[in-house]
Design a protein around this nucleic acid. Structure first.
Length: 647
DNA sequence: AAAAAAC
């Protein structure tokens, strides 16, 4: 379980801070101190406010599964693949991957004009704007795969770790899980794209969530970080749109009428979901558009005008577009909230409620609603049930899952010693070299100011760092992320803006320089490493100002088979029991094996219980099953190509 | 108390 480089950790920890004096080195020439950075002003956009006509035919039959989906020209290998559930035993380096890509004929695929769009983007019956050549979203992936660097460092998905993963479903008539993608009718185009993504078999959350969603059910899914959630909600949405009769969308005004809406709490996460969704929807005729703040709206408006089927958005920019009547939600048949617990917490909930309940979106029951997160506090579940109709609750357990692959360490570090202690860790990493050239370190701090100041200090001390937080311009944020991912600045100092969902390959080490107050935030932060079944290291600096998280942290570490320092246990037991009622902020799910538990079950506990109990629905049926019961089609193999598509 | 999210 412990990887080679993780073993080098303790050596670094043994160094004393006293031995290290910051080595004054000139800042890298490219570094610009925070106060010197100019915040670029946004392009002003003339606001037009066309009156939004009521779409006359929005009462289309909901979900009309068409047994004869519109034929989509597809390369000839797809059907062969669909009928072969045993691809799981093939190695990426084997002939399968190499040969199949050749025979797909990439150059031909780049010309979508040979693929008359059967969906009618935005303006049915008429293709006002023939689509420009659809760029191949797999191009970058392909070049990455050919890199020996990545081949060396990526060990591929560790499916063995998922063999015994506990899965809990509850709700009425829960559709059964599948073992392979081939068992589900996702359509030729999507099947082909799944293959291009090098996904060989579904992850646990996908095995359960896809059949449930495909059956048209609402879903609240709780699955560990890095477990393939994006695909779990994108696949069924794409498949459903493909097999439905696309309702004709009004041509009036300048509104666009997406069929699916995917909301996420940060701009970068929306961007990431968009990039993934574009791959899945490649050459399916389904148009994906992303909108978020901080970027010029004019370009986004143009994209929308060209038609949109799946809209990925952050709440603020979407609200803006809704007020401008440039987007109508009246045709939305699928609503997905990623990081749903964050979307429904105090800061976001009113905004989300406004979008979902007071605009023109069909109500729960007339649309499908999919909620995904790694964490689902009980009170958020209760809020969320307002948006759901007869939903299935799905929890994929933590044991044997990716958080188990993260080695978690907690060190007692006083505030004034944090910087030098971080320096020790970084020096140790650098000296051992065991992390490899592409090993990245993500450092979480509490405040935006703190992020700037730590970044400056690191740079001044010879550690190439950059920072991402909400006070930086969107350009700067995206640049920082690129620079981090590419290894130009292998240290990224971040606020919680980077805590959730971001899939950054090769993050070997997550440092909680400042611990969060909420254990769920901790779970999401450390989930930036140890992805796709790879191992990772998470180090937290703890001191007296973190007492409130001591107990849930100790419990979490215990649940994931980590060594809990004795001193931390003392802190934990010195705080009031979280089970005594009241003060349930940091309550986890009562020590069970899941990241969350259906609040409709397990009635009878106090109402302050955070993750379970006191449900207003009595007697919801539940099943606990082992996810990977059937070994069919699962062979040991390694595939370096999976990591980035896993979440 | 902080962070995120529109102009």
């Amino acid at each position: 379980m412990v990887s080679a480089w993780a073993d080098s950790g303790p050596e670094a920890a043994e160094k004393t801070t006293a031995n290290v004096s910051p080595i004054p080195r000139p800042a890298r020439p490219s570094y610009v101190p925070p106060h010197m950075r100019n915040r670029d002003s946004q392009t002003q956009m003339a606001v037009s406010n066309p009156i939004h006509p009521n779409p006359s035919n929005s009462n289309q039959t909901y979900r009309n599964p068409n047994p004869n989906p519109a034929p989509i020209p597809s390369p000839n290998l797809s059907s062969a693949w669909v009928s072969n559930p045993r691809v799981g035993s093939l190695s990426r380096t084997g002939s399968w991957a190499a040969e199949s890509e050749k025979s797909f004929g990439w150059s031909a695929e780049k010309n979508p004009n040979s693929n008359p769009n059967p969906r009618g983007w935005g303006n049915p019956g008429r293709q006002r704007n023939p689509p420009a050549a659809e760029p191949n979203p797999f191009a970058e992936e392909g070049s990455k795969l050919n890199s020996t660097l990545f081949d060396q460092e990526n060990t591929g998905i560790n499916f063995e770790a998922y063999e015994d993963i506990p899965v809990e479903t509850s709700g009425e008539n829960v559709p059964p899980p599948v073992n392979t993608f081939a068992e589900i009718d996702l359509g030729d185009a999507l099947n082909l794209n799944i293959r291009r993504c090098k996904y060989v078999k579904p992850t646990p959350v996908q095995r359960y969530a896809i059949p449930i969603s495909l059956a048209g059910r609402d879903l609240m899914a709780c699955a560990q970080t890095g477990s393939g959630k994006t695909a779990a909600f994108c696949f069924p949405i794409i498949a459903a749109i493909m097999r439905s009769n696309v309702p004709s969308r009004p041509r009036s005004g300048r509104s666009s009428f997406p069929l699916a809406l995917i909301l996420s709490p940060t701009r970068e996460l929306s961007m990431q979901i968009y990039e993934e969704a574009k791959k899945f929807a490649f050459q399916s005729g389904i148009k994906v558009v992303v909108v978020y703040g901080g970027a010029p709206i004019s370009q986004q408006l143009r994209e929308l005008e060209r038609g949109v089927d799946i809209l990925v958005a952050t709440p603020g920019r979407l609200s803006d577009l809704l007020e401008r009547r440039r987007v109508s939600l009246s045709m939305v048949k699928h609503l997905a909230l990623d990081e749903a617990d964050r979307m429904l917490d105090m800061g976001f909930e009113p905004q989300i409620r406004k979008i979902v309940e007071t605009m023109d979106m069909p109500p729960a029951g007339k649309r499908q609603t999919l909620l995904f997160s790694a964490t689902f506090p009980r009170e958020i579940q209760r809020l969320a049930s307002d948006f759901l109709s007869s939903y299935v609750f799905l929890a994929v357990g933590r044991v044997g899952s990716s958080t188990d692959l993260i080695v978690q360490r907690v060190e007692f570090v006083l505030n004034e010693e944090k910087r030098s202690h971080l320096m020790d860790l970084l020096h140790g990493q650098r000296a051992s070299g065991a992390h490899g050239k592409h090993a990245l370190t993500l450092v979480f701090v509490e405040t935006k100011k703190g992020a700037d100041s730590l970044e400056y200090w690191l740079c001044s001390n010879g550690f190439p760092a950059t920072t991402i937080h909400g006070d930086r311009s969107q350009q700067e944020r995206e640049q920082a992320l690129r620079s981090f991912k590419s290894g130009v600045t292998p240290i990224l100092v971040a606020t919680d803006v980077a805590a959730r969902g971001l899939d950054i390959p090769h993050v070997a080490h997550v440092v909680n320089f400042d611990l969060p107050n909420d254990i769920d935030d901790y779970v999401h932060r450390i989930g930036r490493t140890g992805r796709a079944g790879n191992s990772g290291l998470a180090t937290a600096f703890f001191n007296d100002s973190n007492i409130s998280i001591a107990r849930p942290l100790a419990e979490l570490m215990q649940e994931s088979n980590q060594d809990v320092p004795t001193w931390l246990q003392k802190y934990a037991s010195s705080t009031r029991s979280s089970y005594g009622g009241g003060g349930g902020r940091n309550r986890r799910s009562g020590g069970n094996r899941f990241g969350g538990r259906d609040y409709r079950r397990d009635g009878g506990r106090g109402s302050s219980d955070r993750y379970g109990g006191g449900g207003r629905y009595g007697g919801v049926q539940g099943n606990v099953v082992s996810s990977y019961g059937s070994p069919a089609g699962y062979g040991a193999y390694s595939n370096p190509g999976y990591a980035s598509a896993w979440d």
